[in-house]
Design a protein around this nucleic acid. Sequence first.
DNA 1: ATCATTTCCGACTAGATAAGTCGGAATAAG
DNA 2: CTTATTCCGACTTATCTAGTCGGAAATGAT
Lengths: 165, 165
Amino acid sequence: MLRVSTRGEYGVRLMVDLARHYGARPRSLTEISQAEGLQLKIQYLEQLVRSLREAGLVESTRGAHGGYRLSRTPQDIHMGEVVRALEGPIAPMICATEGEMEIICDRLDGCSTRYLWTRVRDAISDVLDSLSLADVLHEEDRRAAAVHGTPLIQLVPRTRTVGGH
Amino acid sequence: MLRVSTRGEYGVRLMVDLARHYGARPRSLTEISQAEGLQLKIQYLEQLVRSLREAGLVESTRGAHGGYRLSRTPQDIHMGEVVRALEGPIAPMICATEGEMEIICDRLDGCSTRYLWTRVRDAISDVLDSLSLADVLHEEDRRAAAVHGTPLIQLVPRTRTVGGH
DNA sequence: ATCATTTCCGACTAGATAAGTCGGAATAAG
DNA sequence: CTTATTCCGACTTATCTAGTCGGAAATGAT
């Protein structure tokens, strides 16, 4: 439950990749998809990165040797921004949509479940807003160091099911 | 994003209704659906309540005057149990599925995004596990009281539409 | 000038998931 | 024995996710 879609999954990976190469020349989707094991899904990545660009998180250069780079430093980009750009406002329930308190479920004020979902939403937002791209990247270094030379392999496809309930 | 399905929505409502009538005679789905404004979706509710029964959260009595009741006190049932019974394990991302750490995305240990999703998952679990049905019900009373007396929360004027992103 | 590489864009499609329905069997009360 | 209700498996429909397609526009290299 409460699943993040592949947009969020790939998009976050893409941003982490850009953070890892922050300061260098623009990075093309081809490079990114190879490095991240998202092979041949470039057309799909284009779609995602578009949302990121429109949200002002990345800048692009067209043409040969073109590509993308972060428009701010990794410390200055918070995961909340990234995830929202990719997946829209955080809203475990329609009546608990971020920034849209007017969306109500006719039972409005006395609704106790709304309180529950709002709590859940805030918990998610707090985590995402408290972590920057730099934090996530840093965690990666920490883990890589701990393991020493784990090869980067490809992703499993989405269709693998997790034990239902 | 991170949406809870109608199973979670209706199921939680149903449980709150049962909590509200805790100690009384069994409550039929017909009664519940009317009280909660879920009219005529009884067949669907049957499906949900089945999960709740199989999880040991409610007990049923068949036949005329039958229905459902909580199998524990409202203080003793945590929202985490309810939501998991309805929607399965909390798993914002496949590699961050509760209780199934073996489900991995091949890049396993060095994966920094997994760290992110695990943090999100834990934030959700913590909120859900920290609240009992009694807490949610109590919040409802608090709100009902606020409506009759002085409002605790000032509601902001509204403009419709749930902006996509 | 042309060509290869790359971003950019709108539309389209297939497959998966969620939401809800159907028909009927079993059980219990009146 | 009739009516209210839970119980159950299978089915259908609608919505959304994930991914594709075809081509236009920009840029650097030859």
